[in-house]
Amino acid sequence: MKRVIAARLAENAGLAPEIFRMVLRLPEGEMPARAGQFVNVYLEDGAHLLPRPISVCRQEGNALTLVYRVIGAGTRRMAHLQPGAEVRISSPLGNGYTLPERGHVLLAGGGVGVPPLVQAAYEAKAKGLHVTAALGYRDALFLQREFADACDALAIATEDGSAGFHGNVVQLLMAQALPEDTAVLACGPKPMLRALQAFCAARKLPLQVSLEERMGCGYGACVGCVCKLLRNGAIVQKRVCKDGPVFDGSEVVFE
């Protein structure tokens, strides 16, 4: 069964301005997560009753790493938690990425869409796939060591031009030749995903995107978090938390 568990905070430190890495120790025998899945973080105070969905950045044994940006009161509270604290989180939720059996994988990430691609990179590497990452940052870089370790090739773009390509990830990819058997796994802001959708459609590359939406429950009970897909000529609504957060990029309707 899925459950809510009390994990022990082992580490909670800044990686870049407003970006934090939280390492949680899970109880023995706890569920392994797949790349693209997320956990609900329960803050449990009167002002922040709803779960904060945060993607699995990495799971090794009973160590679960989450990397998050402080954008509001809830994530600020998370950043203030001290090592040793108990953090209530859910079992891994959602469907995650599907890795191809062979060939090339391109991981395209932007901002806090970068963290979930760490787990994807390690899983793809373990499968013997050729892994390239194209990562976009506002300014400060983070998680570089992990990608350097897991990927065969790594390209960086920054909006301020302070490192790597000056521009965004899709502009960076425009300048590259990609092998025909490349599967693209993406996570990032909506405008980036929309541009990637057009990019992949033009090159006939399969694309999987991870979406975000405001959540009530985070496990499929409330239908608060729907997105729209165009499937067989008709618009269908799917729950980001349960039917996603990873969807076939060619089907997503970006509004």
């Binding site: 009753l49 709803l50 405001r214 239908v223 608060g224 729907v226 997105c227």
Partner: peptide, 21 residues
Amino acid sequence: GNPTPRIAETYGGMLNAVGLQ
């Protein structure tokens, strides 16, 4: 149902406008 966002947090609770999807 209604368009998203359908959920907003409030002190001691939440607002929803799922719209009976």
